[in-house]
Design a protein around this nucleic acid. Structure first.
Lengths: 235, 235
DNA sequence: CGTGTGATTGACGCCTGTCAACGTCTGTGG
DNA sequence: CCACAGACGTTGACAGGCGTCAATCACACG
């Protein structure tokens, strides 16, 4: 249960082959290992809150984090889900702004906290690390731009189908073709940018059209191609 | 008329006090000056096109560039306007992806082309430059996230009011309180993410409510506070 | 003067948000 | 063990925002 608490940094985020830390020198690796601290979070915990100043970023060793902004009337807009290997909070740290999102734990999580100075030090002194982080940011920016276009032009129905496909691609299916990530209807609505009731109605429609099967929060994907078609996705 | 053609790099983008190039060493400055090339573009020119590979980024010495994605049925979604001092195209260069947007000249423009290798060289070798560029990207990402929330939660009416305020803040007003940037109704619609007709109708409403005055593409801001109120903006 | 692009207006109807009521499930406390 | 509260899910009714289509106007340009 607590096995990952004992993970040293080297067993964790730092040495994954696709980690952005892969280019660190042994010295730097040691520095980061020394500076960082690992922490456990329970479901529902807030890691940082929109509008607050954060003095470091978090590398996700395990778990799923919901990153969202609070809009009109407190309605949340989910910007993304971060999962094992992802980094959150670095945007605010590097742009030196207050956090523009809130990060909340969905699945029991284990995070590495890396102080701002350490991050900045790496950006300034390790060109390869810098490039990696830059690429990550640029990719996120590209995705954000795509999402803006989608939300501006697609119908709720199209967006919901699209989100289901994205969730499938990002979190996978279990052996029964059921989405590995479990979200409330309200959360789905807050990704798509619509009302909870609309999500419920559209999911029912998708079910009626044999695209998915529903069992509480479990969503089984029956016809991925169909969803892709509805969502106007070509990839 | 052609005076800016003769601007050397040092008189142009490179030495502006707020330029991201301000941290370059004399050597690097010389390298960039050597590698770059300046080019004139007429209104309507395409600088790069979505889906194409671009081998460098462009620094805007003068002019206004419309950056947009092409969505369903070819409808364009304007992501942002870049103006003097801004850099475009670096996202694709650094993330090593195909261009995810098209860049089109709105106002007669003069651009510096900086080859990818030069940009990457700077990111890898100059920590301060790297930080500057990273901050820029992070800020853009923050704005994109805000925009996602707005588009997902606000009505077209609210968004149009918001956009008018943004355009005012970014491009300013002339001595008659008229927006300095001139856009077609369709372009306004493509920022807001709505139909051209809706923009026309809402602008008429705003005019009727004494918030603005219209004269062709000229939009005079009469009641900024009113627009801010309608747009749910607090800043 | 014809042509084309952009702006405007009206008609129409569907998508989608809102409100309200009700069902379902889980955990808590008596 | 049961009652209850509270969170979540579902369904129906309803209206209005907004997209679409079509016709017309305004204006610039060759």
């Amino acid at each position: 249960m607590n096995s990952f608490q004992t993970l040293s940094c080297k067993d964790g985020c730092l040495d994954r082959s696709n980690s952005i830390f892969k280019h660190l020198t042994p010295d730097e690796l040691e520095k980061v290992t020394f500076d960082k601290s690992t922490e456990q979070f329970k479901r529902g915990s807030i890691i940082y809150r929109e509008g607050s100043r954060i003095n470091g970023c978090y590398c996700i060793q395990k778990g799923i984090i919901k990153v969202f902004k609070t809009g009109i009337d407190g309605k949340e807009q989910i910007i993304r889900f971060a999962r094992t290997g992802d980094i959150i909070g670095f945007r605010s740290v590097l742009s030196n702004e207050l956090a523009c999102t809130t990060a909340e734990v969905l699945d029991e999580a284990s995070l590495c906290y890396i102080p701002a100075e350490t991050l900045v030090y790496l950006v300034k002194h390790n060109g390869n690390f810098s490039m990696e982080l830059m690429q990550l940011t640029c990719k996120e920016l590209g995705e954000a731009n795509t999402y803006i276009t989608d939300i501006a032009q697609k119908t709720v129905r199209e967006r919901l189908a699209e989100i289901l496909i994205h969730l499938k691609n990002d979190f996978g299916l279990d052996e029964n073709n059921i989405l590995q990530i479990s979200l409330t209807r309200e959360e789905l609505a807050n990704i798509v940018g619509t009302a909870t009731e609309s999500v419920i109605r559209l999911l029912s429609e998708f079910k009626h059209d044999q695209l998915i099967e529903l069992n509480g929060r479990k969503i089984r994907i029956l016809d991925e191609a169909g969803l892709i078609r509805i969502g106007n996705l070509y990839n």
